[in-house]
Write a protein that binds this DNA or RNA. Structure first.
Length: 204
DNA sequence: CCATTAATTTCAT
DNA sequence: ATGAAATTAATGG
């Protein structure tokens, strides 16, 4: 199953509607939980994680986005505050477009609205799958769900040669597992032949 | 080198 | 089997 990168709007189009380029430092927040939703954001360069912290202070990562991907889009159509944080994992360059101008852009480009619907469908599909995986007590199931998703982002199948570029801690925070459990489960899966570990790279 | 960060192992539950 | 703490490896100045 091929996944559409959500969402990638032509940068010139964003600029022409008033989008502005903004540079963020590593670990700088783009927005935080309870902030108002004021902009559409699209990454030009860098990486952003969407997360929140539970009552024990443990981090849960909802997603990690990279170049040419947007984040927080869905909240633009809702009069609500952000339920999550967006934090830069590395120095990043991000275009932001004020909400009203974003809406205006959609009105003038109906095809974009359709693309966004496709992206939302994709997002819901992924989240639904993750909920199913997380409902499972089996760590292998949870990891497989995440890995399949990440792999589907990257075009096509190539045996066990897709490099997962996340740290084990990040994988743990994406699956709700402990880092030790991730390490142990990865080794187990390697024995079962469902992935490869070379030095410390994860190939799926 | 030293400092920081990530991966792995140890050890107790 | 799991997680906290300790150890080891790598990465970056």
């Amino acid at each position: 199953m091929k996944i559409i990168s959500c969402m990638n709007i032509d940068e010139d189009l964003l600029y022409s509607f008033g989008g502005e380029n903004k540079v963020y430092k590593k670990s700088e927040p783009v927005f935080k939980e309870d902030d108002s939703v004021l902009y559409y954001f699209q990454i030009v360069q860098g990486k952003v994680k969407l997360n929140h912290y539970n009552e024990d202070g443990k981090e849960f990562i909802h997603n990690i986005l990279g170049r040419k991907q947007s984040f927080g889009d869905a909240f633009l159509f809702l009069n609500q505050y952000y339920p999550i944080n967006a934090i830069c994992l590395e120095p990043s360059e991000i275009i932001r477009l004020p909400k009203q101008k974003f809406i205006e852009m959609l009105k003038q480009n109906p095809d974009l609205s359709l693309d966004m619907n496709a992206c939302f469908s994709q997002e819901i599909y992924y989240k639904q799958k993750m909920i199913q995986n997380m409902a499972s007590q089996n760590p292998v199931q949870r990891l497989k769900g995440l890995l399949d998703y990440l792999k589907s982002y990257h075009s096509e199948d190539c045996g066990s040669c897709f490099h997962i570029k996340f740290t084990r801690q990040q994988i743990a925070n994406l699956t709700g597992l402990r880092v030790e459990t991730v390490i142990r489960t990865l080794k187990k899966m390697e024995k079962e032949g469902s992935l490869k570990l070379e030095n410390r790279k994860i190939l799926y």
